[in-house]
Structure formats: structure tokens, C-alpha cells
């Protein structure tokens, strides 16, 4: 018996969300009095043995030149899961995790719960807490099958860093030729991916037009934050679609969410209300967003934001 964690990577580097998944898997292993191990498919430039500091004892490494393909990668993970005698599989609830986790559930005939935000309760069965209703609620779900697949919401479980080193075991398994092929990757240059960001600066229709986003980008740059926006802003083409947060956009849970010129409609709040601290800047004191905020400023964004940027610059190098 063991807990197997999928280690995701992009551009030669292990994804920060995988550090969270590794720590989560290691803590689950402790609860179940067993060991956590990892599986890595393809090559990375990072120190793989160093992942031991997140609590995994061993990393199974499968070599391949094929680009990501859910079907063939899932088969490789299944191979490793069998070898490792894995009963619990842990993924990050990120784009690749969303593609892989369900396939493994079918292969292992395992119950699957995704978007998990806490460690399971294992005193009576195996009960995990997940977000539901796009952030408006949580459900506690019992996985009753003997094998289990869970995926962890990014930014919900802080990595726990210890000191171990992991052994690396190369697996002699050749992936079949995938039926899908990545022919090009468009990297979002220099930006912090929204789902991974711990700090987010977001703006809405109150900004009047795309030409006014300079001050938002500057503020985000100052505090090393990702940028986000409300739905009408993305729909009007003022900002790219991947910045749209809310019930029908990206759901995020950063440490800090600064909302500028956003009214705080229920569909918007659903996507951001798990943020640890919410700051609202709005010229209307009646804006509903203030009810969901920790700190608020009633004022004109065009005056407040540049001042805020200048103040942050004083304390951040």
C-alpha cells in the first residue's frame, strides 16, 4: 500500500502546484501509516531527489519524448501505481490533473473527488472536503471504494518543507504513440499564472476601457501579483479570456485579492470568495463587494491606484 502523487511540469520545471500535491500526499500517507511516492513522466531540469523534502520517499521516473497526452500518460501512471501498490492517487486540480485524474479513476475502479481543500478524515472511512457551487459551499464526500483518486485545489494546501531526499527509480516502460500531439505551446511571457498566484490584482468595468489598465499592470508588477478581471471586461475584449474570474471563469483562492472598480456581483464573488484577504476599491460606498471584503476604500480608482502603487513601492524592493 502507498500513496502515489503525480508530479506535473512545464517548460522543464516542476509546477508549484505539484509541491502542494506532494505535501498533501505525504500527509495522507502519514494518516494511513504508509509511504508517499511520486511519479514523473518526461524530463525536468530540477533536482528530483530534492522532492524528498516534501515527504516523498521515492520518485518513479518514466522517460518519454512524447508531449502530454492524457490517455498515454494515464497508462504510464497506472503502470507505476501497480508497481508501487498505490491505493490513493493524488493530483493537483490543475489543467493536466483534470485530464489525468479521471482516467486513473476508471483504470483503478476508484471513486474520485476533485477540488479537495483539506486533508481527509480517516477515522471513519475516507472523507474529503471539496469546494462546490463555485465557491459558495463545501461538500464532505466519502470515498467508499478501496482505491481512491483525489485532486487538490491549487493554493488550498501549503507545501510542508522538511529535509529528506527521495530515491529515484527509473521505470522501464515505453509509452504508446499518443493519438493527440502538442504541436505548439504559447507561453504567457513573464506573467504569473492566475491559478498559481498568491497575490492577484483585478479590475472591472469601473476602469472604463482597456487603455486604463496600465496602472493595474503597474500595481501588479510592484507586488508581483497576477492580473485578473470581471466577466464583462473579458467579454468586451479589454482583457484576455484567461483573466476572467468568477463562477463562469477561473476560480481562485489567493492570499490577497485586490478588486478595483468591480461591483461584486454574486457570480463574481463565487470565483474569488475563498481568497484569504480581499481589498475592495470602489467609488460607490454601496457596492456589494464591500460586504465580502476585509479592507475597503471608497474612492476613484484613477486616484487611489497610483497612490497605492507608490506606497507599496516604498516597502517592496
Amino acid at each position: 500500500m502507498s500513496v502515489l502523487v503525480y508530479i506535473d511540469h512545464f517548460d522543464g520545471h516542476i509546477k508549484p502546484s505539484s509541491f502542494e500535491a506532494l505535501s498533501y500526499g505525504s500527509e495522507v500517507a502519514k494518516l494511513l501509516k504508509t509511504d508517499a511516492v511520486g511519479v514523473l513522466i518526461g524530463d525536468v531540469k530540477d533536482d528530483v531527489a530534492g522532492l524528498g523534502k516534501y515527504g516523498v520517499k521515492k520518485v518513479y521516473s518514466v522517460a518519454t519524448d512524447f508531449t502530454f497526452d492524457a490517455q498515454q500518460y494515464a497508462q504510464a501512471i497506472h503502470e507505476v501505481a501497480t508497481k508501487a501498490g498505490a491505493d490513493v492517487l493524488v493530483f493537483s486540480h490543475n489543467p493536466n490533473g483534470k485530464a489525468l485524474a479521471p482516467r486513473l479513476a476508471v483504470r483503478l475502479q476508484a471513486g474520485i473527488v476533485t477540488g479537495v481543500v483539506e486533508l481527509p478524515k480517516v477515522d471513519q472511512g475516507f472523507v474529503v472536503k471539496k469546494t462546490v457551487f463555485s465557491g459558495k459551499g463545501f461538500a464532505f464526500v466519502e470515498i467508499q471504494s478501496s482505491k481512491k483518486v483525489v485532486s487538490v485545489n491549487p493554493n488550498s494546501f501549503k507545501p510542508i518543507v522538511g529535509s529528506g531526499t527521495a530515491t529515484i527509480e527509473k521505470i522501464d516502460y515505453k509509452l504508446n504513440t499518443p493519438k493527440t500531439k502538442v504541436i505548439k505551446v504559447n507561453k504567457a511571457e513573464g506573467e504569473v499564472p492566475l491559478t498559481e498566484a498568491t497575490l492577484v490584482v483585478s479590475a472591472g468595468r469601473g476602469l472604463k476601457g482597456p487603455e486604463n489598465w496600465g496602472m493595474i499592470e503597474s500595481l501588479a508588477h510592484t507586488i508581483h501579483a497576477a492580473t485578473a478581471c470581471s466577466r464583462p471586461v473579458a467579454d468586451s475584449g479589454w482583457r484576455p479570456h484567461h483573466e476572467h474570474v468568477g463562477q463562469t471563469g477561473v476560480q481562485i483562492a489567493p492570499d490577497l485579492y485586490i478588486a478595483i472598480g468591480i461591483s461584486g456581483a454574486i457570480q463574481h464573488l463565487a470565483g474569488v470568495n475563498r481568497s484569504k484577504v480581499i481589498v475592495v476599491i470602489n467609488k460607490d460606498p454601496e457596492a456589494p463587494f464591500f460586504k465580502a471584503a476585509d479592507y475597503g476604500i471608497v474612492g476613484d480608482a484613477f486616484e487611489v491606484v497610483p497612490k497605492l502603487d507608490a506606497e507599496f513601492k516604498k516597502i517592496i524592493k
Binding site: 509546477k15 505551446v185 504559447n186
Partner: peptide, 9 residues
């Protein structure tokens, strides 16, 4: 994908 997009065939 996190950090961009892929074009897939």
C-alpha cells in the same frame, strides 16, 4: 495550461 496554452492536433 498553467502559464499559457497548447495547440494540439
Amino acid at each position: 495550461i498553467e502559464g499559457g496554452e497548447e495547440i494540439i492536433e
